[in-house]
Computed example of a mutant assay.
Amino acid sequence: MARPLRARIDLDAVREHYRFAKRLAPRARALAVVKANAYGHGAIAIARALAREADGFAVACVEEALELRESGISAPILLLDGIFSPAELPLIDDARLTPVVHSWPQLEWLRQARPRHRIDCWLKMDSGMHRMGFAPTDFAPAYAALAECRQIGTIVLMSHFARADEPEHPFTARQLHCFEQVCQHLSAPRSLANSAALLSCARSHADWTRPGIMLYGVSPMLHPHPLAASLRPAMTLETALISVREVDAGEPIGYGGRFVCERPTRVGVAAVGYADGYPRHAIDGAPVAVKGQLTRLIGRVSMDLITIDLNGIANAAIGDPVELWGRQVSATALAQASGTIAYQLFTNLNRRVPVVYEGIA
């Protein structure tokens, strides 16, 4: 019998969320962000599921883009990190990729390039996040330098928000004002809105949006938001109980004896561990569901196993289903109990976790 751990991916949910993103910004086109293997959901499968309706896709780097091209994806693909060296330009030219340009060296590599096709580019401004992008004072000169290149096609102006997941915080408005002031005399399409801004800042929707985590059914917001309530998890990570035992009050559970039973406890062992991507730092009390009932993690996470409190789960037995995150157990709640974010849970899934796709068109 195979190990019972698997990840189920609901492709219908991903399609629904992309359509939701389009409804939120009906005048904009939307790039589906599928970087980092589609946030752990499988970039090729997700891109194929969206291929008939997505306006394009966004990835981090050339390697991720070429994987999509080789799988038959012909839509525009944006390279969010841009070009790492001039040696990538022939690949970008051949695969008709669109790089983000966020620095003078990248711009100069493009100016010196002699591609067979005109290269579309997205020009990035640092409007306050201070991670990548041209300073506001350099942005118009950078645009002018890029626009005069005969080998450059369409240019989209972009920036990225640092705190759009906090709708009440004034920093997003500050970034938006900076971007609008600098770009007011530049005649080019614009892109600002990530998932959080799509939900919380209609003023930022512009010509292109970039939905990411919301495609996978997770709210990007720090606190509950009415528009995020319609999102449903696309991924369910599930396994099964492989051992059930009775442990006396006062007895420790697992490595280091971190958890000590307060009362006689029925303890279940489930087949998943940190080698699969389950968070090693999940605390005692982290949520888990057995037979559709919420309960808690007890004891330290092992490489291949976790231990679960079965008190209150009637007749729990070997083989019973365990949900680690999905519809019953919020990935965000587990992440909060593990000192991380849902993004990391998804992207940390190990290749030994089988993936099953549902809703294939």
Rank of each mutant, 00 (worst) to 15 (best):
R203T: 11
R174V: 00
G257S: 13
A270E: 04
A164N: 04
R190I: 05
S219L: 05
H160V: 10
S159R: 03
L176C: 00
H177S: 09
A162L: 07
P170T: 07
H177Q: 13
A196I: 02
E166A: 13
G212Q: 09
A193W: 06
R163M: 11
E148F: 01
V267R: 09
G277L: 08
P264C: 08
E246G: 05
P220N: 10
A270G: 10
Q175W: 00
V272L: 11
V269D: 02
G254L: 06
V267L: 13
H185I: 01
E166S: 09
L198A: 07
E166M: 14
A249N: 08
T265Q: 12
A240P: 15
I213A: 07
I152C: 02
R150L: 02
Q184R: 13
H205G: 09
A193S: 15
S187F: 00
S159V: 01
N194P: 02
Q181W: 03
G212H: 12
N194C: 09
M214W: 00
W208R: 04
A240T: 11
V260S: 09
A147F: 01
A173M: 05
V244C: 12
T172V: 04
F171I: 02
G217E: 02
R245K: 15
L241T: 05
L199R: 08
P252Q: 00
R263A: 14
D276Y: 05
L198E: 04
N194M: 02
L237R: 04
N194I: 02
E166Q: 14
V244P: 06
M221V: 12
P220R: 06
L186E: 07
V247P: 00
E246T: 08
A162D: 14
T239Q: 09
R150G: 00
V272D: 08
T154I: 03
I253W: 09
A188D: 04
E251Q: 15
I242T: 15
P211S: 11
D248E: 14
R263C: 03
A240S: 15
H223F: 08
H225I: 08
I253H: 11
V182H: 03
A229N: 08
T236C: 12
R150A: 07
F179Y: 06
A162E: 14
V260K: 12
V218I: 15
G250Q: 04
P224D: 14
A193N: 09
I242P: 11
N194A: 15
G217F: 01
T154Q: 15
